[in-house]
Structure formats: structure tokens, C-alpha cells
């Protein structure tokens, strides 16, 4: 306890002594009342069946799940054999290739950007503001939207997928790493400056070594994210295992869809476990 307030050290009065007045029950705070009202209003406005609501109904949900439907029938007859086909194999391979290339390229670009994206590392205010703006815009666009734009720019296939994940990686690694730079020990930075180092030299000898473990860890984390994201890029024509899932879905072969999804889950979980073990060692 940090408080220094001492209790009255005098002898306690008899329990019947007229002590302090009982306080009145305070009214609930405006924040609590407002928050609860806002929550209720938002839920009704979005859920009700009116012009601007989506008309959410539990009965409809219940009917949907209890009615016979092809995706759930497919789940019951899941076809893990589809994993062995050449289509799935190529899809998985492409997914891993896309994730590897885009993570490495994105992380390399992200390191200098991260330095400039922190108050400590930026050479001047203009560079700081520009990098910050660039990074905020990159991060506010979802990965699938990037893919949509690149498919329009360079046509369908793995290339737009790689480009989408590349930009997505830049955003993630830059943000996480620059947050770390703000928290590093300023001692070495001061020492480097005192020895007459230039700004870039200071960054190289005093800042980069301090953030390198965290940066590596974030890059690996980003690889996990990219692997997961690559499962959906195929839905807009940007390659990877998502294209295979989309193909089987188009054919109505839900048993195969679920087979591929299970395979994908296994890959993601295995990679996540390995990456987490490595990252724990790193930090």
C-alpha cells in the first residue's frame, strides 16, 4: 500500500457512540448509465428489423442450423482424402511460399520504417510524420482489401497475394517494432551520441541491437498471421489454399472443403506451436 494516511491512533469509542453519518446511496455514475443505454441502443438499432437494422432473429438462426443443409452434411462426411490430391498439395505449397516471401520482404522493409516511426529513431519531425501517416493508412486497410486492389492491378494468381501480404506485413511489423523502440534503454543511445556518432550510426549500434530480438519475434509472429491470412486471399483470386477452398465450394463439394480446412488448421497450429517455442527462447 502506498498510502501514507494514518488512522486515528486514539482509543476506539464504544460501539454505540454516535459516529459518522451513514452516507446516502450514491446515484449510479453517468458513465455506467450512459454506457448501458448506449449498449442497449446500439444492439437494438443494429439488430432490429427496420430500415437500418439487419433483422437478427434467434428463431431464424435456430431454423438454419437445424434444417438440413449442404455445408453441415459435408462436415459430417468430411473427406480428409482431399488433402492428398495434387490440387490441395499445390495449394498448401503456394500458401507457404507466399507467406515466406512476403514475410521476409515485408520485415526487411519494416525495420528502417520502424526506426523512423519512433520519436527516438526518426531523423526529423517531417520524416516521423510521413512514416507515421504512411503506416496508419497501410494498417487501416484489411488484408483482403489489399488483395482485391492488387488483383485489379496485376491480375489473378500468387503475385497479388504476395503483394497484399507484403504490405500487410510492413504494417504489422513496423507498428509492433516501433512500439518497442519507444521503450528501450536510452543509456547506450546517449553513450553513442557522446562519442560523436552520426544519427544513423547511433541507430545502428545503440538502437538496432536492443530491438533485434523483439523485431525477430514480431517477424515470426507476422509469418503466422500471413499463413492464416493466405487462406482467404484465394477468395478474391489471389492464390494459395484459399483458391482451393473456393474451388471446392463452387463445386458444392463441402466434404472436400472441410477436409482442406482441417488440413489448414493442422498446418496453422503446428507452425504456431513451433514459432511460439522459438519466440519464447528469443525474448
Amino acid at each position: 500500500m502506498s498510502q501514507v494516511e494514518h488512522d486515528d491512533a486514539g482509543p476506539p469509542a464504544a460501539s454505540t457512540a454516535p459516529g459518522a453519518q451513514r452516507p446516502k446511496r450514491p446515484r449510479p455514475s453517468p458513465f455506467l448509465v450512459g454506457g448501458f443505454a448506449g449498449l442497449l441502443a446500439m444492439t437494438i438499432a443494429t439488430g432490429a428489423d427496420w430500415e437500418f437494422g439487419i433483422g437478427f432473429s434467434l428463431i431464424e438462426v435456430w431454423d438454419g442450423f437445424t434444417r438440413s443443409n449442404s455445408p453441415m452434411r459435408g462436415l459430417a462426411e468430411i473427406d480428409l482424402g482431399s488433402l492428398l490430391g495434387s490440387r490441395a498439395r499445390d495449394g498448401f505449397l503456394e500458401t507457404v511460399q507466399m507467406a515466406v516471401i512476403s514475410t521476409i520482404a515485408g520485415a526487411l522493409v519494416a525495420l528502417p520504417l520502424a526506426l523512423f516511426n519512433s520519436k527516438l529513431g526518426a531523423p526529423n519531425r517531417v520524416a516521423y510524420a510521413l512514416v507515421k501517416l504512411f503506416n496508419n493508412i497501410i494498417r487501416s486497410i484489411p488484408d483482403l482489401l489489399w488483395a482485391l486492389l492488387f488483383v485489379a492491378a496485376v491480375g489473378i494468381g500468387a503475385l497479388p497475394g504476395i503483394l497484399a501480404l507484403f504490405f500487410f506485413s510492413i504494417g504489422v511489423v513496423t507498428k509492433l517494432t516501433s512500439d518497442t523502440i519507444d521503450g528501450i534503454d536510452h543509456g547506450p543511445v546517449e553513450a553513442a551520441r557522446a562519442s560523436g556518432a552520426s544519427h544513423l550510426q547511433v541507430l545502428r549500434v545503440a538502437v538496432v541491437p536492443q530491438v533485434l530480438p523483439a523485431y525477430t519475434s514480431f517477424s515470426m509472429y507476422c509469418f503466422e498471421l500471413n499463413l492464416r491470412a493466405s487462406a482467404v486471399l484465394g477468395f478474391v483470386g489471389a492464390g494459395g489454399i484459399g483458391a482451393v477452398i473456393d474451388f471446392y465450394r463452387g463445386q458444392g463439394q463441402w466434404d472436400r472443403v472441410w477436409g482442406v480446412v482441417v488440413g489448414f488448421l493442422i498446418v496453422v497450429i503446428v507452425v504456431e506451436r513451433i514459432s511460439m517455442a522459438l519466440r519464447r527462447r528469443l525474448l
Binding site: 439487419i54 433483422g55 437478427f56 431464424e60 438462426v61 438454419g64 442450423f65 434444417r67 443443409n69 449442404s70 455445408p71 453441415m72 483482403l144 492464416r228 491470412a229 487462406a231 482467404v232 477468395f235 484459399g242 477452398i245 473456393d246 465450394r249 463441402w254 472443403v257 480446412v261 488448421l265 496453422v268 497450429i269 504456431e272
Partner: peptide, 20 residues
């Protein structure tokens, strides 16, 4: 571990195209 989009494509045949 499953992205939202995959849930969505599996739910569309059940609930139809749209926000539900």
C-alpha cells in the same frame, strides 16, 4: 484458427447471401 471468411462461406448456403 479459422478465418471469418471461411465461416462466412459455409454459412451462406444456410442463411443465404446477406448480413445474417
Amino acid at each position: 484458427a479459422i478465418p471469418e471468411i471461411i465461416f462466412a462461406v459455409a454459412l451462406i448456403p444456410i442463411f443465404g447471401l446477406g448480413p445474417l
